[in-house]
Amino acid sequence: MIVRKTDRVLVLGITGRQGAFWTEKMLACGTRVVGGVNPKKAGETQSGVPVFASPAAAQAAVGFDVAVMFIPPAAAREAAVAAIEAGAKLLVVLTEHIPQQDVMRIHAAAARGGTRIVGPNTAGLVTPGECFVGIMPAFNERVFRPGRVGVVSRSGSLGTLVCLELTRAGLGQSAFIGIGGDPMLGTTTRDAVAALDRDPGTDAVVIVGEIGGAMEEEAAEYAALMKKPVAAFIAGAAAPPGRKMGHAGAIVMGDRGSYASKRRALESAGVAVVDTPAEIPTALRRRLP
């Protein structure tokens, strides 16, 4: 789930307003966009890349590794399954508000097809200096610079802020992995932390979590065994319980998913948990050799 500039990327919904806008940005950042999909505009080009009728047609004509979805919720399941069946190795689902049972069907198809899902409701993946896939400001040099810190985030906006802090501190990033704000994700915090742990370009990891679910607790179990230093910020300490805080996954019921539970789990795993995003670089520096 760390994207590389050699990865061939297919953009589903490439001709829409957002699809076209972000395709231009991706191309400008070095992403190898090999094509797009829109059944009604097959044969045309968008931003200089060919538009195909389906992911299968794109696979046959140019081949792709990664598919990214600029598709509204009601059409998301069908588009995702088409990309999976066409052999996507990685599918980045940006769409928010996909019905939960459609999400389950996407995951079921991915399990059968051997596709890794990132998302739903992710802002995407960035490898500074190489490329990006999604809707992150990878082109903004004040936010993203090549470095050796890997960032895992449920939120795009907060992930952007954390990357900005790392760049300000002169650390930069080896990779940004946006896992998404939905409750049922294809790639969990733990999966992403493990990928960064294995990545030779990464020396330290930042977990940007939020209240709700149990992903930070699971990631803590893995972090306890890591040699690379890990710092974390968890959003939602001041959130009122029992209400969905924008992200469908960000809700506290009883003690489950609470800020206290996550902070406790991460701290007992030796992770430096900070109170504000600006403290992350300092916390990491203290732990880096």
Binding site: S157, A235, A237, D275
Partner: peptide, 22 residues
């Protein structure tokens, strides 16, 4: 964004203030 909004509330509380809304 949900994450940044929650964080803004958190930092308000961290600085001794009280957020009025999400």
């Amino acid at each position: 964004g949900a994450g940044l909004t929650m964080t803004t509330m958190d930092v308000i509380r961290h600085c001794g203030g009280r957020p009025a809304n999400f």
